[in-house]
């Protein structure tokens, strides 16, 4: 049931139009950070206000919404955002990746490949991939404009010199269609390959930083690396203890005080689906 005190999906129509214009611009220039007049939302900055505004601007009554945080549908922030739209937009919700028309996510890309017609909305804390190399917005904007990305590789060089490998494990920077360097939001680098050539529309919203950027379907996205130190999408070398999946991203769960732990899929829908199909991991019978 929609809350009558607010318009559909909370934001007023003018604001939604403003956000849609920013989204269209972002889709037209993939990877470019489009400034937008981010609004205060009833949840705090840093808790997904950018993603929520993008979702609000994209939702139509026929949509079926899925919200995940850390890959899971049942984490508190995911529950809170899903409830917010159930209340303010009255849209149907789902936990099934395949059934969703719009998925808002924090920190993960679902394991199941997305299809044409789906929209994936990322919550972004720091949209600027160069931010921690150069704190000034005025300077980083110039660097993007002039395509001066040498500094980004200096960071990767330093990683290899110090650690023997590129020591960036999440929010791993990418280059979009050979032009803009982009922060993929803090997804694990394991998810980076899914950014490229994805059939779905990928939208990124940063509320506090007032930026929107996007990847249209089938955009080429390359993770930055060196020719002799190529990017690898690594993950812990375990299989899921519940569903036995060997190729999904895993959460480590501490099970007792004695150092006991288990590894389970971070994508809860993916894991449940596999178990329904009869797959079983090391502890699949007990959990």
């Amino acid at each position: 049931m929609t809350d009558q005190a607010y318009t559909f999906a909370y934001l007023d129509e003018q604001t939604k139009r403003m956000i849609r214009r920013a989204l269209l611009k972002a889709l037209a220039v993939p990877g470019y950070q489009v400034p937008f007049a981010s609004r205060e939302m009833p949840m705090p900055y840093g808790w997904g206000t950018g993603g929520v505004q993008v979702t609000a601007a994209c939702l139509v009554p026929e949509d079926r919404l899925k919200v995940i945080d850390q890959g899971a549908d049942d984490t508190t922030n995911a529950v809170s955002i899903r409830r917010f739209f159930a209340r303010t937009a009255g849209v149907a919700t789902t936990e099934a990746t395949a059934e969703a028309t719009l998925i808002q996510t924090r920190h993960r890309i679902p394991e199941q490949p997305l299809r044409e017609g789906q929209i994936l909305v990322y919550q972004v804390p720091i949209p600027e991939p160069l931010r921690f190399l150069e704190p000034r917005e005025t300077e980083t904007r110039k660097m993007h404009e002039l395509e001066e990305y040498g500094l980004m590789h200096v960071k990767l060089y330093e990683d290899i010199a110090r650690h023997g490998t590129i020591a960036t494990s999440y929010a791993y920077p990418v280059k979009v269609e050979g032009r803009y360097v982009m922060d993929p939001s803090p997804i694990p680098k394991f998810d980076n390959p899914k950014l490229s050539g994805n059939a779905a529309i990928q939208l990124f919203g940063a509320g506090r930083e007032q930026r929107i950027y996007a990847l249209p379907p089938y955009t080429a996205v390359v993770s930055l690396d060196f020719d002799d130190h190529p990017f690898t999408a690594s993950k812990p070398g375990h299989a899921c203890d519940l569903c036995g999946a060997a190729h999904s991203y895993l959460d480590e769960v501490i099970t007792d005080d004695a150092g006991g732990r288990m590894f389970v899929c971070s994508d809860t829908d993916f894991c449940a689906g596999r178990r329904r199909e009869g797959h079983q991991g090391r502890l699949g019978g007990q959990a």
Binding site: W47, Q70, G71, T75, I187, P188, E252, S266
Partner: peptide
């Protein structure tokens, strides 16, 4: 305050990656 307090939210995906 929003950004400060958002570090209360789960970050286990990132942390897992770091730990690995």
């Amino acid at each position: 305050t929003g950004f400060l307090e958002h570090i209360k939210l789960p970050h286990y995906v990132d942390f897992q990656a770091e730990m690995e």
